[in-house]
Amino acid sequence: MTVTPTSRVDIGPDEVSARLLDSAARLSRNAMTEIDWSAPMDPTKYGCSPEWSTLYGTPYWDELSEDQRVTLTRHEFASIMSIGIWFEMMLQAVVIRDQYLGDYHTPEFQFALTEIADECRHSIMFARASEKMVGTSYKPHPRLGRFGKLFMATVSDEVAYTGILVAEEILDVFQRGCMRDERVLPFIRTVNEIHVLEESRHMKFAREQVRVAMREVGPIRRRWSAFYIALSASYIFTSLVRPQAYRDAGLDHHRAIAEMRRNHHFQSMVRTGCAHLMEFLDEVGLLTPAAAKIYRKVHML
Rank of each mutant, 00 (worst) to 15 (best):
Y104D: 12
I116H: 05
A206F: 03
L101C: 12
I170F: 07
Y161L: 04
L197M: 08
E169P: 00
T106M: 09
R143P: 00
K139W: 11
Q209R: 15
M203A: 06
G102A: 11
E168T: 02
G102C: 09
T114V: 11
S225E: 03
R121K: 10
F126W: 08
H202N: 06
D157V: 08
K149R: 09
F174Y: 15
A160C: 06
E115N: 12
A160E: 00
V173Q: 10
I170L: 08
L113P: 00
F111Y: 08
I236Q: 10
S123Q: 10
W224M: 15
P142S: 05
T162H: 05
A233M: 01
A127K: 13
T114W: 04
Y235T: 13
D181R: 14
L171S: 14
E119P: 07
M203S: 07
Y138I: 03
E119L: 04
H122T: 05
I188W: 05
R211S: 03
R189W: 01
Y104H: 14
H122D: 03
K132P: 01
T162N: 08
Y235K: 15
Q110T: 12
A160N: 07
E168F: 00
Q110I: 09
I164L: 08
A213E: 03
M214E: 09
V212S: 06
R201V: 01
T162F: 02
V173P: 05
P140A: 01
N192Y: 07
E108K: 13
L101S: 13
V196R: 07
E158D: 10
F187Q: 15
S137T: 13
R176W: 05
I116K: 07
E216F: 14
E193P: 00
H202I: 04
T190A: 12
G145T: 05
E168V: 05
E193G: 12
A127T: 14
M179C: 08
V217D: 02
Y104W: 13
H105Q: 13
G177I: 08
A233G: 06
V173G: 04
V191A: 04
A206V: 07
Q209E: 07
T114K: 12
Y235S: 07
R201P: 00
A112F: 00
R207C: 03
A230E: 01
